[in-house]
Simulated assay, not measured.
Amino acid sequence: MAIVNVTDNSFGSEVENSGTVLVDFWAPWCGPCKMIAPVLEELDKEIGEQVKIAKVNVDDNPESASRFGVMSIPTLIVFKDGQPVDKVVGFNSKDALKNVLTMHI
């Protein structure tokens, strides 16, 4: 499955009406966000059939970021059946993120 870009308008249909979703709250000017992008691509190749990965640009979609209390980026929130169940703030390795996700698959 490919990584999807989500907006404030599409958040409900892309995240809240799906199974397990990892949402990356990011911005183009954020250095650690750029570092985590290839990690998310690798995760998508490895477990993309089990977990949907979505990206929310916080500059363009402030409602979603505010709604989930995103205060610094990157913030990655795991949603299960539309509810936030885990949160990781800052850059993390692929293995660390995979461990978080496997708890919710």
Rank of each mutant, 00 (worst) to 15 (best):
D86G: 03
K34D: 10
M103S: 15
H104E: 00
D81M: 10
N61G: 12
Q83M: 09
N61A: 11
P32L: 01
F91R: 12
K80Y: 08
N99I: 08
V88Q: 11
D95C: 00
N57R: 07
S93M: 09
I105C: 08
V88N: 02
E42K: 09
E16N: 07
E42W: 10
V70D: 04
G19K: 12
V85D: 05
P62I: 15
N5F: 05
K87D: 02
Q50F: 01
D81T: 09
M71G: 12
F25Q: 13
E49H: 14
L43C: 03
G69H: 06
C30I: 13
Q83S: 06
F11Q: 09
N99F: 02
E46I: 00
L22P: 00
K45A: 15
M1E: 10
T7H: 01
V70Q: 13
F91K: 06
E41G: 09
G12R: 04
M1L: 15
N61Y: 14
N57L: 00
N92D: 05
I73P: 12
F68N: 11
A96Y: 01
D60Y: 03
D86A: 14
L43I: 11
F25H: 06
G12N: 15
V4G: 15
D60R: 04
S13C: 07
V89S: 11
D24P: 03
M1P: 13
N92H: 15
K98M: 09
V58P: 02
L101M: 11
Q50D: 14
Q50R: 05
V6K: 15
M71D: 08
V85M: 00
P74H: 06
G69P: 08
K45G: 02
K34P: 06
G48L: 15
E14W: 03
A54H: 03
G12A: 14
F25M: 07
V4R: 14
S10D: 12
L40R: 08
K87L: 07
K55W: 07
K98R: 11
K87H: 08
W26P: 08
M71Q: 06
D44T: 02
V39S: 02
E63C: 14
D81C: 07
K87E: 09
V15H: 01
K55Q: 09
W26F: 11
E41S: 10
K52V: 11
W26T: 10
K80P: 07
S18V: 03
R67C: 05
K94L: 08
E63M: 09
D60Q: 15
G19N: 13
V4A: 13
L76H: 08
L22F: 06
L22W: 04
G82C: 09
V23G: 01
S93E: 10
F68C: 03
N57K: 03
K80H: 04
L101Y: 12
V70N: 11
E46N: 01
A65I: 02
E63W: 13
T7C: 01
G12K: 09
T20H: 13
K87I: 07
N61R: 12
P32F: 06
K34T: 03
I36G: 02
D95L: 05
F91M: 06
D8N: 05
K94Q: 03
V88Y: 03
T20Y: 10
V58F: 11
T75C: 11
H104V: 15
N17Q: 04
A2F: 07
